[in-house]
Every structure is written in structure tokens, then in C-alpha cells.
């Protein structure tokens, strides 16, 4: 047995420096995905023509391919495209190489979780009985009002457990973004481990960090759920 507690502490301090990046990725991905994925779910529920088949294709693509491949693919493709486009507009495209990889990671996480969250919302909207709409229209509500006052509050309480799963999924997915050079929790831990060849301690440390963040996310969603249910 050789597990050095002292090194585990050093590695913990180093790894904790990555927590803001990890939290930023979770919050930004989830926050941006909420409105977009809800609109995507509406487009699919109402079968709006060009959008519905396109979103279906997109969902099948993201479900069937690894996020790791998306990360590498866009990490190599996007800067190239943006650079060309910026030169085309007469701007200095080389600025693109100063871009923090965090933004690319955010883009790929969003690309992935939009599909999962839109499926969460779609299931939730479909779970609402038709007579809820009919009842709202009978009271003279417009479609928008019916959604705002009747459908969304009910759909939210069905969607929340699934959304909480997606949020935990985002947390777990952030652990691979180190491959494109984002300095998150995992990246910091790996670096500290590599300098001293003590991998076990560093990985146990980040395990603890991820468990704590995961616990917090679960708690937040439990609170949100109990608040929505009370209304």
C-alpha cells in the first residue's frame, strides 16, 4: 500500500482551482440550453416542417457519436472556419488562436445537451393531457397564454427530474474537455499527478470533488421541484 495523504492534500488544492471553470461550463451550458431546447421540443411536438426532420437527424447524430469525437472535430474545424470568415470580412483572423478553448468546450457541450434536454422537454409536453389545452382555450386563453399559465408549469414539474439527470450528465461530460486544453478540475489533477507520478491520489481527489458537485446539483433540483410542486 502506498497512498500518500500529504500528496492527496496538495493535489486537492491544485484540483480545486479548476472548480470555477467546471462550474462555469455546467451553468452556461444548462442556462443556454434551457430556452433553445424548449423551442426545439416545441418544433418537434408541432411537427413544424423543415425543423422537425432536421432536429430528428441532429438528435440521431449526437446520440450515435462520441462527444470526444465532437470535441476534437470542432476543435480543429471551427477556428479554421472562423479565421477564414474573419479574413473575408477584412478582420485579423489570426486573433482566433487566442480564443480560450473553454468557448469551444461550451459549444460542444451545448451541441450535445441540447438534444438530451429537448427530448426531456418533449416528453414532458407530450405528457400533458390534451384537455388541459382545451380547458385553457375554453377560458378564452390565447395559445401563448395557455402555454405560459397552464402548460409550462405542469410540464416543468414532469421535466425537472429528467433535467436534473441532464445536468448531472453535463457535469460528468465536463471531465473530458481537458483533451482540448481546458483547465478544469480533471486537467489540474492530471497535471499535478503527472509531475509526481502519483495518479491514484489525484484521481481519488477529483472523485470526491465530482461527488460533492453532483450532490449539490441534486439538492438544487430537489429544492426546485418541491417549490414547483407546492404551487
Amino acid at each position: 500500500m502506498n497512498f500518500s495523504l500529504g500528496f492527496a492534500l496538495t493535489a486537492m488544492v491544485e484540483s480545486l482551482k479548476g472548480v470555477p471553470v467546471t462550474l462555469f461550463l455546467i451553468v452556461a451550458t444548462f442556462g443556454l440550453a434551457l430556452p433553445i431546447s424548449f423551442s426545439m421540443a416545441l418544433a418537434r411536438v408541432y411537427k413544424i416542417f423543415p425543423l422537425d426532420p432536421l432536429i430528428r437527424l441532429y438528435v440521431s447524430f449526437v446520440r450515435g457519436t462520441p462527444m470526444l469525437a465532437h470535441l476534437f472535430f470542432f476543435y480543429n474545424l471551427l477556428p479554421m472556419v472562423i479565421r477564414k470568415a474573419m479574413f473575408g470580412l477584412g478582420l485579423n483572423g489570426n486573433l482566433v488562436y487566442d480564443l480560450n478553448p473553454v468557448w469551444l468546450a461550451l459549444f460542444v457541450l451545448l451541441l450535445n445537451y441540447l438534444t438530451f434536454m429537448s427530448e426531456n422537454f418533449r416528453a414532458a409536453i407530450l405528457s400533458i393531457q390534451k384537455d388541459q389545452f382545451e380547458g385553457a382555450y375554453a377560458f378564452g386563453f390565447t395559445k401563448a397564454q395557455a402555454y405560459r399559465r397552464i402548460i409550462i408549469p405542469q410540464a416543468m414539474s414532469t421535466a425537472l427530474p429528467a433535467l436534473s439527470n441532464s445536468a448531472i450528465g453535463i457535469l460528468k461530460s465536463t471531465s473530458v474537455v481537458f483533451v482540448i486544453g481546458v483547465r478544469d478540475v480533471t486537467a489540474n489533477a492530471k497535471q499535478v499527478a503527472a509531475t509526481s507520478y502519483r495518479y491514484l491520489e489525484a484521481y481519488v481527489d477529483i472523485l470526491i470533488i465530482y461527488l460533492v458537485i453532483c450532490f449539490l446539483i441534486t439538492r438544487i433540483f430537489q429544492l426546485a421541484e418541491s417549490r414547483i410542486r407546492r404551487r
Binding site: K172, S175, Y199, L200, Y203, L207, Y210, L211, C214, F215
Partner: peptide, 13 residues
């Protein structure tokens, strides 16, 4: 709640 790569590294190392 554990990310796959963390467990992968833990089991490997």
C-alpha cells in the same frame, strides 16, 4: 455520479 474517465483512470492506475 462519477464521470467515466475518472473511474477509468482509477481502475487503471
Amino acid at each position: 455520479s462519477v464521470p467515466s474517465i475518472i473511474l477509468l483512470f482509477l481502475i487503471f492506475y
